[in-house]
């Protein structure tokens, strides 16, 4: 195949994602989609792609890829360390938040994600992927999505929609804040009455450690036991992203993009939409705290976040 991208090293939790799969959760199909939709959107904007164009998401360590077509334009977003080398062995250190014009034989090595978890690798024009329920997001647990519902593996070939591209490259001139806030804002959950007053109080006033059992499905926390007063089971009901459920052991779990469609644990809180991207980028081992806010603050924070994203996207300029 002469029009492709070859995966020389798969990296960690490397998968195709877009903005997610909707209106099928009633069939037991979860939403999935990119974990950090700001970095996802910025990547597509720099490449002048459609905002929902599928790309590669990776965690901790990204893939190493070889360009096997005439030319391609890539962009990497997130706090990512990577190099680009050509056939002659010349190597440069790459920068996030700008596009690169690459030719056949070039190799991109996404070595690591720095002080955060997720990064994105997009291609101008997008990847040629079959949509399932109007989305190319992959959920490996349910085997839903293109690539047989699997993560990207060593030796895979990725076919792009455009076999060659123009040489113009672009960059974000206003960069996102790299520092992650450790206080996450939360709205009260629907089953607050399942917890003792002390349990609720300690949930909002102590710190929790993010454990290494965290993945795209859920963030498992460790801290002072959140005390339940009723049974730790509710009648199973629909789940939405960012819900914080507490099983009988009193250790909260934040449900993330690959969450199950329904669940039976009581939920003490729900992360506000404005803080979701910040939360999922905090590395396991770090401490976080939850602060209770009201709906007004949640909605205003979302509008502010959207305005800041818009300003970043408007700051994209041509750099060659």
């Amino acid at each position: 195949m002469s029009h492709s991208i070859k995966i020389l090293r798969e990296g960690i939790s490397t998968s195709f994602q877009d903005l997610g799969r909707y209106n099928v959760q009633y069939l037991g199909i979860g939403p999935s989609g990119c974990m950090d939709d700001d970095n996802f959107r910025i990547c597509n904007a720099i490449l002048h792609n459609k905002e929902n164009e599928g790309m590669i998401e990776f965690a901790y360590q990204g893939p190493k890829i070889q360009i096997d077509q005439e030319s391609v334009k890539i962009c990497i977003t997130g706090n990512v360390i990577f190099t680009i080398s050509n056939k002659d062995g010349e190597m440069i250190r790459g920068q996030s938040y700008r596009s690169y014009y690459l030719k056949k034989g070039d190799v991109v090595d996404v070595q690591s994600v720095k002080d955060s978890v997720y990064g994105y690798l997009g291609f101008e024009g997008g990847i040629n992927l079959k949509q399932y329920f109007q989305s190319v997001s992959v959920n490996p647990r349910s085997k839903i999505g293109p690539n047989n519902g699997e993560k990207i593996k060593n030796g895979d070939l990725i076919i792009l929609k455009q076999p060659k591209v123009s040489e113009d490259v672009f960059a974000l001139s206003r960069l996102p804040e790299a520092k992650k806030k450790s206080v996450i804002r939360v709205l009260e959950g629907p089953q607050l009455d399942y917890f003792s007053n002390e349990g609720v109080h300690s949930f909002f006033h102590t710190e929790f450690k993010i454990t290494s059992l965290t993945d795209r499905m859920g963030m498992r926390l460790e801290g002072k036991k959140v005390e339940l007063i009723k049974s730790a089971n509710i009648k199973s009901e629909g789940i939405i992203r960012g819900s914080i459920q507490v099983p009988a052991d009193g250790q909260p779990i934040v449900l993330l993009s690959d969450h199950q469609t329904i669940g039976g644990y009581p939920k003490i809180g729900v992360v506000i939409t404005a803080d979701y991207n910040n939360l999922i980028q905090i590395l396991p081992g770090n401490l976080i705290a939850f602060r209770k806010v009201n709906m007004r603050e949640a909605e205003i924070s979302f509008q502010l976040k959207q305005a800041s994203l818009k300003a970043m996207i408007e700051s994209i300029i041509k750099i060659n």
Binding site: G20, Y22, N23, V24, Q25, Y26, P31, K235, S236, E237, G238, I239, I240, T261, I262
Partner: peptide, 9 residues
């Protein structure tokens, strides 16, 4: 984006 029916919700 999603409507999710369960037993009683």
């Amino acid at each position: 984006k999603n409507c999710i029916p369960s037993y009683n919700k």
